[in-house]
């Protein structure tokens, strides 16, 4: 359906914006390495089904490879910055102080409690869906600590947030058209979107009206 397509396109756009930002500017100011590492973990644990060869569709498979590949590539580009732009790298590390163990632990526990089946694949899937819902927190934390961000960085976060937000009408659509109600994705998707709500509000008030992103 249209919401699902738009959501996935928005997800693709967010990654393209991020890659272009890092490659063009040759700096990583304001981008959280921790969030990017969490996304590698999210995609690698979610798409383990690639190994089972029970593929849903060519579209899904290509997208999965794209998300795993680009998330690893982003982390590599950011690590390269250590040599090519050490000032920017140090500055990023100085601000990227969120303790991700407070996300990883609870997500692992939640995956053990809430899952569709007690198998390695399903537990990893559940872990990834919980982790995705909070993976942006180091990035938002960094943003709130520095109080401002480059416009491109905010476009990236907006596109990334929009992706999960658009999955919500997709789930409503699927409930009515297929009678499908996938509770875990829906709950974590709502949680994820809620975490972005503050950001969305400031983005709408400032960036969309041509003013820079600056926190009150």
């Amino acid at each position: 359906n249209i919401f699902r397509i738009l959501a996935d396109l928005s997800h693709l756009a967010s990654i393209v914006i991020l890659l272009e930002t890092i490659r063009k500017a040759r700096q990583i100011d304001g981008i959280s390495l921790k969030t990017q590492i969490l996304y590698v973990l999210v995609f690698c644990t979610r798409y383990l089904d690639l190994l089972t060869f029970r593929w849903t569709s060519l579209y899904n498979t290509l997208m999965k490879f794209f998300f795993i590949g680009t998330s690893v590539y982003v982390v590599k580009l950011m690590q390269d910055c250590k040599l090519t732009n050490p000032v920017s790298y140090k500055d990023m590390m100085f601000r990227d102080t969120f303790q991700i163990k407070y996300l990883l632990g609870p997500c692992a526990l939640l995956a053990l409690v809430f899952n569709y089946k007690f198998t390695v694949l399903e537990l990893c899937w559940s872990f990834s869906i919980w982790l995705e819902s909070v993976a942006i927190l180091p990035q938002l934390f960094m943003l709130s600590r520095s109080g401002k961000a480059s416009t491109l960085t905010t476009h990236y976060i907006f596109a990334l947030g929009l992706y999960r937000a658009l999955y919500i009408p997709n789930w409503i659509w699927r409930y009515y058209s297929e009678n499908r109600l996938e509770k875990l994705s829906i709950f974590t998707g709502l949680l994820q979107t809620a975490l972005y709500s503050d950001f969305f509000y400031i983005y709408y008030r400032k960036v969309m009206k041509g003013r820079g992103f600056e926190l009150p």
Partner: peptide
């Protein structure tokens, strides 16, 4: 109540 769900979303 279905216990297994096909993960056809990304």
């Amino acid at each position: 109540e279905g216990t297994e769900v096909e993960h056809d979303e990304l």
